[in-house]
Design a protein around this nucleic acid. Structure first.
Lengths: 342, 342
DNA sequence: TTGTACGCGTTATCAC
DNA sequence: GTGATAACGCGTACAA
């Protein structure tokens, strides 16, 4: 890196601390990392010297010598999507206070970017890696398989974990939601989806599972787009859907933003959400409950995913044998007014 | 760090590359960092060797030797707040492809956490630092002042930048919004605010500036809470407000979440947003435009803040003299249906 | 339990 | 333009 034009105070090193505590650097190093290996007396002297001198370990030197950094790499496809933001929140809360640093990588849904980011992270000899989803490219897959650190795949579940997994079945969740629509008496359920990433595709699968099981024809009641999701897009997709499939009497959205947009648009069109048009979102972000009418959604446990991902990494880093390599967090249907027919 | 139980491939080093290119390590290092200093021929041989061997630099070794890491520390008070998420988005987009890594720190609105995180970041000899707001604790202030890297404060403006700043005046923005309510003919404007952080306090100031200038008494029309903001909270605060100040005919919310909650709650109560109750949010997140009725808000330029923060850091890191140490991004009132009286 | 010697992979410094 | 040498600050391996 190029230099920056500011001051440069001399650094306090292990050696300074050792001199002050009248011992050797390696003992100080041990006292800091594994206090149990150092005698009580020495430990105290060292602790005193550390605070007096204001010693702060140099992570670069540590990483170089130990061939292992304190970085936990986290790859997510979008920073703005509130779903991932909540995963991050749980993740950061859990990592706080621990001697590790989360380093965020934004893949922007691009496999090449993901490959590259994984390379960058691995060059740091990370303590652990968290990656989103189970659809890594062959390149990424190979890199992760060869990684000499624990890896957690989050958000979904799959047959062949690279290492560990924590998530839930998007397909089952969407099927449950669709079953709910059918049970509530809607005859022509539709599916609209934005940003059709692998998880959304599996939700669509779940939708199809459900209507097939109920002997309902799909007709033209599936509208999807690769465009990133937004509330506004909900209105657009609703218009498309009603144009091509006017019989539609219920909609499963691949996420809550769309559902909110559909609701606003329905109000504009004078369509009564619930009685005339059933509406179900996905993820159950906070606004679903607060909306008027409140909107049915499938709750997913996003903060828990972040928390568990770190817990699993920590367990492995500490050498514990994790018996459950794959954790299914499930989901919960939250029926609300938007799927009440009267 | 403790070891992790996985494989451990031998690392390709500068020396390997140098041997293959029949030159010295330092020349390879130079060829990679300042190609201009190495002859064309050698540069090609080296490039070839690098790709053939799949050499990836070790950031830890680099940081140790150069006393400068490629880390850009970013401190924000909340990961889930979509406002900061968008700042991050601009920031990550801008940093992508550059030889720097953003490292995120979540202060959770706690000054002690911020102090601690700044210490942690500084121990990494970061290439630059991005911190939120201008209300750092004395400790943080001192740490930042002594930091030997460029620092950008984002989100607001202030008289005494630690180093650089990019933001806007929350006070002016809120005043503009309140003026708008008054101009539209609302006689009893109110303010509701959640999570009253320093920026929200300044918005409240702006609100008070405006009503004072219009000779309007504040009455009991200010309701605030330290509780984190949410859509649901908008409903709660509306109830409180109307209970203690029934004359209220317009509301400035300290953010868009609250505004949305107020709108839903108003629908429930049969209050017509616009004609009966003026409503204005803050930040102008996407849903404001899509809502029905659409909600007036003050647009702020969050992605731009993230982008500019990195741009300013880069300029300084590259040794350019940044003439504008403080950048005012302004704001834009977006009048919509929620402040239409008829 | 404590210490010695060395190496981690890179860059700064100074010579050629 | 290129190279030898010596750090950078810490942890591993081994010895005491």
């Amino acid at each position: 890196m190029t230099q920056a034009p500011r001051k440069s105070p001399p650094r306090v090193t292990l050696e300074d601390v050792a001199r002050r505590a009248q011992t050797s650097t390696i003992t100080v190093s041990r006292a800091l990392r594994r206090p149990g290996m150092v005698s009580e007396k020495l430990r105290e002297r060292i602790a005193k010297a550390v605070t007096e001198l204001g010693y702060v370990p140099d992570p670069a030197a540590s990483a170089l010598a130990s061939r292992r950094s304190n970085v936990i790499g986290v790859l997510i496809p979008s920073v703005t999507n509130s779903v991932f933001a909540e995963v991050l929140s749980g993740l950061y809360d859990t990592i706080a206070g621990k001697p590790f640093n989360a380093q965020l990588g934004n893949t922007r849904y691009a496999p090449e970017t993901e490959d590259e980011l994984i390379r960058v992270f691995l060059s740091q000899r990370p303590a652990g890696l968290v990656v989103t989803g189970i659809d890594q490219s062959p390149v990424s897959r190979a890199l992760l398989a060869a990684a000499d650190c624990p890896v957690v795949q989050i958000m979904e579940l799959g047959e062949t974990p690279t290492d560990m997994m924590v998530g839930f079945s998007h397909r089952d969740a969407a099927r449950t939601a669709t079953d709910h629509l059918i049970e509530r008496g809607y005859k022509f359920p539709a599916f609209i989806g934005a940003r059709m990433d692998p998880r959304s595709e599996r939700r669509l699968q779940g939708f199809r599972d459900a209507i097939a099981a109920a002997d309902i024809a799909e007709g033209d009641r599936v509208v999807t787009t690769p465009t990133p999701s937004s509330v506004t897009l909900g209105e657009t997709l609703l218009a498309e859907l009603l144009a091509q499939a006017p019989e539609t009497d219920a909609i499963l959205c691949n996420n809550d933003d769309l559902a909110l947009g559909v609701q606003f648009a329905a109000h504009r069109r004078g369509i009564a959400i619930g009685p005339e048009l059933g509406l179900c979102g996905f993820n159950d972000i906070e606004v679903m409950e607060a909306a008027h009418p409140s909107i049915t959604s499938v709750r997913t446990f996003r903060r828990e995913m972040g928390r568990l991902a770190i817990d699993m990494l920590m367990a492995r880093i500490e050498g514990k044998d994790v018996d459950e390599n794959v954790r299914d967090l499930g989901y919960a249907l939250m029926p609300r007014d938007s799927t009440m027919r009267e």
